[in-house]
């Protein structure tokens, strides 16, 4: 089998654009998903079961349904409901963020609950209120334990951003499919896309391992 370098060269600028959008989608969704996830995780931990219920329902729904279904629903139904028309990039960011938030909420909850009860008691016995104890004692310890699972989630999110191609958000996978459709070649576009995803996920893992090591020695 010979490789068609000419069509790869032709598509290189599109792959670059697509990669940038994939990175953009991922970063935006990681940021929004993390903030939302912290909020939902804390919500799930509320002692009042009734108040915690909506947060549990949220997590259950987003973890219990396929991302593909979520992205189609949000793209064709939810975004038009709010914006009047749909927008693939917005729909992709919204879906990836909401989906990641559900997983990240569980990571936060597990991280917080893994801290010994005595830590909260010691902080409270010193006169700190709940928020102060969380902020200065519980969360700093919990965050350290959350980094490995969070890193996993971020890697998953980069890979799952490829589903945005379904709604024609012009990210990496979208251009892979476009190239395949134009030249009826399968190896060049998909292997190229795979390699670029691999580079992205490996870079992220590398950064997270370094961060972990830095925190461990602190």
């Amino acid at each position: 089998m010979d490789i068609r370098w000419d069509i790869l060269a032709e598509y290189a600028p599109f792959f670059l654009k697509g990669t940038l959008l994939t990175i953009g989608l991922s970063i935006a969704s990681i940021l929004i998903g993390t903030i939302l996830g912290l909020f939902i995780g804390l919500g799930k931990l509320m002692r009042n079961k009734l108040l915690a219920l909506p947060f549990s329902v949220y997590v259950t729904c987003f973890r219990g349904t396929p991302l593909l279904v979520q992205i189609l629903l949000i793209h064709f139904a939810v975004v038009p409901l709010f914006l009047g028309e749909t927008n693939a990039i917005a729909a992709a960011i919204v879906t990836l963020s909401l989906n990641a938030a559900a997983y990240i909420a569980e990571i936060f909850r597990a991280g917080i609950q893994s801290i010994d009860r005595g830590q909260m008691e010691a902080a409270r016995s010193l006169g700190m209120n709940h928020v102060q104890a969380m902020r200065h004692v519980i969360l700093p310890q919990a965050v350290k334990r959350m980094i490995p699972p969070l890193g996993n989630e971020f890697v998953v999110l980069i890979k799952e951003s490829s589903l945005a191609s379904i709604v024609a958000a012009p990210e990496l996978m979208y251009w892979g499919k476009a190239m395949q459709g134009q030249y009826f070649r399968v190896w060049e576009p998909y292997v190229t896309a795979a390699i670029i995803y691999l580079v992205l996920t490996l870079s992220l893992s590398f950064l997270l391992t370094r961060l972990e090591r830095r925190l461990a020695t602190e």
Binding site: G118, Q119, E121, A122, A123, S125, L126, Q141, K144
Partner: peptide
Amino acid sequence: VGMVFQQFNLFPH
């Protein structure tokens, strides 16, 4: 009211 615990409960970080 200060309190001292059996398990110390110092903040390890």
